[in-house]
Design a protein around this nucleic acid. Sequence first.
DNA 1: ATGTGC
Length: 403
Amino acid sequence: MGTSIGSESSLTPSVQPAAIHRVFSDKAWIEGAALHQLEEMARLAGVREIVAFPDLHPGKYGATGVALLSERIHPLLIGNDIGCGMSLFALDLPLRKLKVDKAAARLRAFEAQEIDDASARLEEAGLPPELFQNSLGTIGGGNHFCELQAIDKVADGEAFDDQRLYLLVHSGSRGFGASVFESTVSSQPSLKDGLDPVSEAGEVWLAAHDRCVAWASLNRQLVAERAGLALGAEVELIADIPHNLVRVSSGGFIHHKGAAAVRPGELAPVAGSRASLSHLVRAGEGVTGALGAISHGAGRKYDRASMYGRVGKTRSDREQLLRNAWGGVAICDDRNLVIEEAAAAYKDAGHVVADLAAAGLVTPVATLRPLVTYKKAVDEVETERRDRKSGHREMRRQKDGWR
DNA sequence: ATGTGC
């Protein structure tokens, strides 16, 4: 099914579409639109193989929940949040000491916690010391979150401390990835055919991509450290797994679009929602046959726009959306985000993990329940940050003093 | 997804 490398045919869609492997059962909730997008992706220039996971759902430039092997680089498939991922941390706080409301009140202001020496942290990560420094340690919007969790159940034969608290951070490269995406789109008129990896544009994107991946990983670490400061706890990294990136393999470039990049034996979080547990799994040898990928979460069931017709029509409805069945709460002051990110918008992560396990890709290690989910707090933090930057804080103080 | 917009 090959087009020869270097010939002009590599710039046109393959006559023979790439093979699509579907890692989900008949019972999995998969939208027809996502399946259609898979077919389109299989015809993109240079694409050799596609693996689709049980959290599959439609995306802007192609389905999400996919690993795709290609001879060419497709920045559109990766999108703007280059390096986005899930990181799980253990806190040195025992579950028995937790008071949900108190923890929620503390977490609410976590983004106001000072980052000691952001420049040094960026340099340690091999990045320029000023690179999007002001966005470091922030969660962002959309499906991103920082969630305090407790172990619900540890799988038989697995040693995992179920008396501690955990923190699951889902975030990415914020404005940095967005700027890389935008400059790529504006400078490359025919991006739908992807980029030649040895062209200047290809090399520029790959280099920027690598920085985004490093920045996003550091961002999750700093989100966790700030949350730890707010809660009075040390954080210990357990897993740091990106799901929006490109990895180089012997067969080409493996594009992960919402598909966790794992190696056999590695621990990886599979995020639930406020209505279903999150899972910690161990990647099996089987992942090598799945382009080194697994699902990263439950996956969307309904698109954002359609959620407005489904939930949160009354005030009490919307308040209910901030509570979960385990006595946990969500911090989300953005009314639209409450509706778009309601638990009902997501599939059950348990079904996703069951499909992955049945395919021999993972073994379950533990399940975790949501206690405090930080999505978005009122603009206080942003306002404070802007003021500090533009020197308005002093003015505000004076103003306050006059009252 | 986004210093999310003029």
